[in-house]
Write a protein that binds this DNA or RNA. Structure first.
Lengths: 356, 356
DNA sequence: CTGAAAGCGCTTACAG
DNA sequence: CTGAAAGCGCTTACAG
């Protein structure tokens, strides 16, 4: 920083104000300072006042680090994310996580996975644990078998955990949206407006969320007596670019298509663009439903009917559940059985399916 | 977790494997274990081997917490963000921050400000400092005078800091895009395709970034001998909804308008929608330029010409600069004067300004 | 090559 | 109401 250019590098090693400094200056023992700093009773009014003055004067702040060490409690939550770059999911959830953690007085120790299927998670978990996090929030989407480490390692993890956006598992705290229900919602809506040739642009199908949405599409069709075929489906990778390609393929393999359910808003966006380019009228020739409920989707052209997930709430809820568990354990309460939370997505109907 | 339902709550207080356990089991002193764990020389081959075996067998991992306390160094970076919900800026930067920190072996202690103009920043800074972060990255957009605390408190902050997206200040490490240049770039492009009636939809003008983009617009117009007027400008709040309102106002106050420079892609999106709704042809009747370079903007209808900022790189660069400084100080090297980094935005030309 | 001592900055019993 | 002692889990000199 060198704000004070005159300072040498020793400024970095300048004496940190410790409890000892305060004790010495105030002429009391360190325990007394500790009591005052922690707002405990059993301190004479006069003593408290004097100590507080010294604390103020010296600018003393207790080291959370030392406290964490001694109390075996850090008020830090380990949060592991992956795919922050996918604006739809983890990034918005992180927002909710951060707000709620702040609210509840916890700091966040953030780790971003560089790959979804990272081979060795052990170092990462140990790095969190070695920093004494009070709990771990796993906000990594479930893809393929990238959660298979759970069976093996979980027993070794000594702090409560919560998991975001993955398949329910017994004995785990999972906070997720009901993606299958969301897929059904979208498809049923398309059926309800009289469409029978309903295609689907899926997300990458090794993602749990993508496969659930697809299942929802299939099951709603089957309920309506329609048999979905492979040619009615195209797979993307969540990006708008992949959505463009998938939609083009679908137009070829499923020419009768009069509606399409797209697994996220970004891919739906490019489907709309391609449709416009080809002169397809929306919703007359083709009805389009997206998924996520991005704020921007109301301003697509035409505005997009979409299945809305409040990711902020998801993250917030996860932190809430996790902290609840942490504090119950800490208070010596035997925690209730792990409680998973399934949130219901919501359909927002707009111009891409219903003419205003 | 209650994976082992049989366990009582004492499982939480299960003995953590410490250096003492290893020492006792291996029949050596704790220092020897420490030497082995830290890969130091001066340990007999046989001893090292035995200790390593015990470490492995017991599953011992050193407490980073204890290390941090003793070494006065935590390998944690305090990162303060605000407005994660604005998908354009901080959220994408955080992605770059997280990746680069991971890369360099630092953990991130994340704090999200609930309000941009939060009155009392002191507790927040102290909470970071009391956890011994090695440096602080301030990723809060500069709004109004919300950075005024700098003058007063900075001298009291004992660790290196870096700042994202704010006005340059002497003696501070600032990593930012040249928003003014970006505004000029956008406006000059519109001039170059023959437009003379160029409006501007600004972001909230108390944001430094918004005001810089507006200045860029003004200065480019003035260079072209055009005097921008108040009626050529409308202010939004970055959201698509606000962009819709601002654009509608602008159409009223500036009917001759044949081009508009919009301060972010989200607001540009709704401008496109309104234009379509009103039957304006883009780019013939109205050319539109956005700002940010969201991946999705290539799939707007029509695809959006925009000033691209690589926020990922911004965040990554900031961490790089910060860690450099930290390690220089730590190695006892007198750090070079604070070096700010200004990144140049880039114009991406698409259909909203140039017919293909 | 290895260990006893001291200490990082606190808090937790335990005396008085 | 207050303090001396012990300790959280490590590492840093210092002896040997």
């Amino acid at each position: 920083m060198m704000i004070t250019i005159t300072g040498t590098i020793t400024m970095r090693h300048q004496h940190r104000i410790t409890i000892k400094d305060v004790a010495k200056t105030a002429g009391v023992s360190t325990q007394t300072v500790s009591r005052v700093a922690n707002d405990r009773p059993d301190v004479a009014v006069a003593t408290r006042k004097r100590v507080l003055q010294v604390i103020e004067a010296l600018g003393y702040r207790p080291s959370e680090l030392a406290r964490s060490l001694i109390q075996q409690r850090s008020y830090m939550l380990g949060v592991v994310t992956a795919g922050l770059k996918y604006m739809g999911g983890p990034a918005r959830a992180l927002n909710g996580i951060a707000s709620q953690a702040e609210e509840l007085g916890y700091a966040i120790l953030l780790k971003e996975l560089s790959h979804f299927n990272t081979g060795d998670l052990q170092p990462l978990l140990e790095s969190l644990l070695s920093r004494q996090v009070d709990g771990i929030l796993w906000a990594v989407p479930e893809i393929g078998d990238n959660h298979c480490w759970l069976e093996e390692w979980l027993p070794g993890i000594t702090v409560p955990m919560a998991f975001l956006s993955m398949a329910l598992r017994p004995n785990l705290v999972v906070i997720a949206f009901d993606n299958l229900a969301g897929g059904r919602l979208a498809t049923q809506h398309l059926l309800s407006i009289g469409r029978r040739y309903i295609g689907h642009i899926a997300g990458p199908l090794d993602w749990w969320e993508a496969s659930q949405r697809k299942l929802g599409w299939e099951s709603a069709l089957q309920d309506a007596g329609i048999q979905p075929k492979a040619s009615h489906l195209a797979e993307g990778n969540w990006s708008s670019a992949s959505g463009e390609a998938a939609f083009s393929r679908l137009l070829d393999t499923y020419p009768e298509m009069d509606a399409v359910f797209v697994a996220n808003d970004q891919m739906a966006l490019s489907a709309l663009q391609v449709a416009c380019r080809r002169g397809l009228r929306i919703p007359e020739d083709l009805a389009v439903v997206g998924f996520d409920g991005l704020a921007e989707s109301a301003y697509f052209w035409p505005s997009l009917t979409t299945v809305c997930q409040d990711q902020h709430q998801l993250g917030s809820q996860a932190v809430f559940s996790l902290v609840n568990r942490i504090e119950a354990l800490n208070d010596g309460i035997i925690p209730p059985d792990p409680l998973s939370v399934i949130l219901a997505p919501e359909l927002i109907i707009r111009e891409s399916t219903v003419k205003v």
